[in-house]
């Protein structure tokens, strides 16, 4: 009987271990595939061309800088809009709103997360694009800012929902203690509840922005896809790396230089999100350690 149990234990442990390792194996395989298809580009196209300012692949102009700039501008713009707005909404739902309002607000925010990005993109074209053009008096409403706003709208539900959960998990005794010491409600939120929920809020931000970096469809529809470099790029059309891959991969012949360069872009995207994840988890790790030190 015990022998059988031990065997069962062994099998289940093995299966769980396999699941754990498989995540690593899949990521490694994807990266290897990207390397295999993308690295040839580095030998086929001179580095000076890859670092050029012009992306026009059908005439062999493979400058990646405008695409990199486009992705960075749109994502940073989305972060600047989504982080304060998302965290504030989470604080409102968790700390300020009365119980009944909270029961309505939370599910509604979560439903927003299910909106397909094409639908948001379409709304963006019909509503946001004309508004941005006339509101900021710009030549066209298809700008990086339009993309940022849509991406922020897309990452908000995730940020709000996850951050609210972690704020909710802060023990009531923390708040009671702060209030008993004479702190106002705002001081309690800012100095006690938010710091206590810090790791959960950071995770919420990373998850939300993770959706923003990889999002393609809505961005392709509203940012104009013009691969240009300028310092005021936020208010002008830009071209992101994801939109470039999505728009051009369909018709490119396998094994050509163009094909390899598109995979190189995929590699760069992968590396960026990898770095962001490492940075975020190391921040979380540090924050946790500090909290543990303070508590002991």
């Amino acid at each position: 009987m015990t022998k059988r149990r031990k065997l069962l234990e062994f099998v289940i442990q093995g299966l769980i271990r396999l699941c754990g390792y498989s995540a690593i194996v899949f990521v490694a395989l994807i990266f290897l595939f990207l390397l295999q298809e993308g690295l040839p580009a580095l030998s086929e196209v001179p580095l000076s061309s890859l670092l050029g300012a012009r992306w026009y692949p059908i005439q062999n102009l493979f400058g990646l800088l405008p695409l990199l700039l486009g992705s960075i501008v749109v994502t940073l713009g989305a972060a600047v809009i989504a982080i304060p707005f998302g965290v504030a909404t989470a604080v409102f739902i968790a700390e300020v709103a009365p119980r009944w309002m909270r029961e309505i607000l939370k599910p509604f925010v979560e439903i927003l997360a299910g909106l397909p990005s094409v639908v948001l993109g379409f709304l963006g074209i019909l509503v946001l694009v004309p508004l941005i053009r006339t509101g900021f008096n710009l030549p066209t409403g298809l700008t990086a800012l339009t993309g940022s706003i849509l991406l922020a709208a897309m990452s908000l539900p995730t940020i709000v929902s996850v951050a609210e959960d972690s704020l909710d998990a802060v023990p009531k005794s923390y708040r009671d203690g702060a209030l008993a010491l004479g702190a106002t409600k705002w001081q309690t939120i800012w100095r006690v509840t938010l710091p206590a929920a810090k790791s959960g809020v950071l995770t919420a931000i990373m998850l939300g922005l993770g959706r923003a970096i990889g999002e393609t469809m809505a961005v392709m529809m509203v940012t104009g896809n013009a691969a240009q470099m300028r310092w005021d790029a936020l208010f002008y059309p830009i071209r992101t790396m994801t939109a470039t891959i999505a728009a051009e991969m369909g018709e490119v012949a396998r094994g050509t230089t163009y094909y390899h360069v598109l995979f190189l872009i995929g590699m760069i995207l992968f590396l960026i999100s990898f770095l962001v994840n490492i940075l975020a988890s190391s921040m979380l790790f540090r924050a946790k350690k500090r909290a543990e030190r303070m508590l002991s």
Binding site: L142, N225, A226, M229
Partner: peptide, 23 residues
Amino acid sequence: TIFAASTLLLPSSEGIIAEVSQN
């Protein structure tokens, strides 16, 4: 000679008509 870098590249004919008709 090629397209100016600031040219908007839209994925569909509908996108082109939408932008030109409202801008």
